[in-house]
Each structure stands twice: as C-alpha cells, then as structure tokens.
C-alpha cells in the first residue's frame, strides 16, 4: 500500500440494491464523457444504497446514495483496476456534519435537509426507509443469501460546479450478495428522486447486497476534468 492517506468510514450495516435503468434516463443524469455501462441493450444500472455509519468517536449517522454504474476509468495514477465504477448523483444524510464533509471532501451532491433512515431488520431481509420533513423518499428491501467476508475495490465519480472528480475506495465487511430478485425498491414522489423516471424503473432488483460490520475506505480525491 502506498503512503497516501486513506479515509475509513466504518458502518454497522449497508443495504444496496441494483436496478435496471433506461439508458436515456441515465444520460440525462451523467456529465459528458461519463458512459453508463449497458447491462443489456438500452438498460444500464441504478444503484440505491443506505448506510448506517458508526465512525470512531461515537459519531453515528445514516446516508442514502443514488448512483449510476458507469465505465471504470483506467489511466495512470488512479490505482488498481476496479470491480466497477459508480457515478454518484444524489446523496442525503441524517446529520449536517456528514453532509458538509461529503460535499467539501468528496464533492458528493447533497440533499440539504436532514433525512431519517430507519433500518428494519428481519431474520432474512432488511429494509431501509428514508424520509425527510417533506415526506417519504424511498423504501429499499434486500434479502440475504450466503454470508461471507468480502473486500472489493471500486471507483466513485462525482461532479459539482468545479469539475469532475473520482475517488477509489474499498468496501469491506461480512457480505451477502445475490441475484434472486427477491428485494424491492419503492421511490416516492419526492424531489430527492427528481432525476429518475420512477415509472420506468422496475422495483425488483437485479442484484441485492447486504453488508454487516463493514467499512468504506477511500483513497484521496482525484480531479479528472474541469467543469
């Protein structure tokens, strides 16, 4: 490992669902030159995740994040070849400090209201219900499969008015991942979801991930291009 600084974000649980998204919808979200992957003709992948962060020092907060799965960036200085790459286009957190760090350090586009994310854990499934003062935002449910310790290396791309950025990160934890299509996504009529045409998104996931006692470990941010 290099001498670069890394930023760990431990979490108690993470719920992630991947859903088919029409390419035309993704292109309306993505900046120029960021290409959605095509899982099959005309469809890319929407990632919806909810994290229950437990940082050192007792700081706890919850976050929801929406991303489009995009083509990984391969060039000198960006690290190993990743499992996949995400373009994060909407994030919301339960605490203003988390929002400030996400926006300033990671250039994540933030929803500027406190959201509550309630995790409802059952024996073989977990749901995350996100809402703010304006009403419910989304409900995401995934089921479990086989629990194994996992570690995966990814890229996250973000853009704000100053440019396009990327951060490589590793996700570790005890993970269940499957493609049984047993979970569910419900997007409510809420401005947080304004970039998505909910009528064109099938609520049955193509892949479901549930991680317990894990961490996101971020490499420093890289600037890819100007705005």
């Amino acid at each position: 490992m290099s001498a670069l600084t890394h930023y760990p974000y431990p979490f108690a649980r993470a719920v992630i669902g991947f859903f088919e998204l029409p390419i035309e919808n993704a292109r309306r979200i993505l900046p120029e030159h960021v290409e959605p992957i095509e899982m099959h003709h005309g469809a890319t992948v929407l990632s919806v995740s909810a994290f229950d962060f437990r940082l050192e020092g007792g700081f706890e907060y919850q976050q929801i994040l929406m991303s489009v799965v995009v083509a990984p960036c391969i060039r000198d200085g960006v690290g190993d070849y990743p499992r996949s790459a995400l373009y994060a286009f909407a994030a919301a957190a339960s605490h203003h400090l988390a929002r400030e760090e996400a926006a300033s350090r990671w250039r994540l586009p933030q929803w500027n209201e406190d959201v509550t994310v309630v995790f409802e854990e059952r024996e073989h499934s977990i749901s995350a219900h996100a809402a703010d003062a304006g009403g419910p935002i989304l409900d995401l449910t995934v089921s479990d499969y086989r629990w194994e310790p996992e570690s995966g290396f990814y890229q996250c791309l973000m853009a704000d008015t100053s440019g396009l950025y990327m951060a490589c990160f590793t996700v570790e934890g005890k993970q269940s991942e499957h493609e049984e299509g047993t979970g569910m996504l419900r997007l409510h009529d809420h401005p947080f979801n304004r970039d998505l045409d909910a009528t064109e998104i099938d609520g049955a996931p193509i892949r479901e991930v549930w991680i317990r006692n894990g961490a996101q470990i971020f490499d420093p941010l890289i600037r890819l291009s100007d705005a």
Binding site: P8, L55, E56, L97, F153, T170, I217
Partner: peptide, 21 residues
C-alpha cells in the same frame, strides 16, 4: 468526525472479476 487508522487493502484475486468487468 474522526477517521480510523489506514488499513492494508487486500490484494484482489481473479474471482473478483469476470470477463464482463
């Protein structure tokens, strides 16, 4: 917010990938 100590990343293995990646 306080960050934890940096950790060693585990080396990826071939099963992390398939052709499509």
């Amino acid at each position: 917010m306080k960050s934890a100590q940096p950790e060693e990343k585990s080396k990826s293995v071939f099963t992390d990938f398939d052709y499509t990646r």
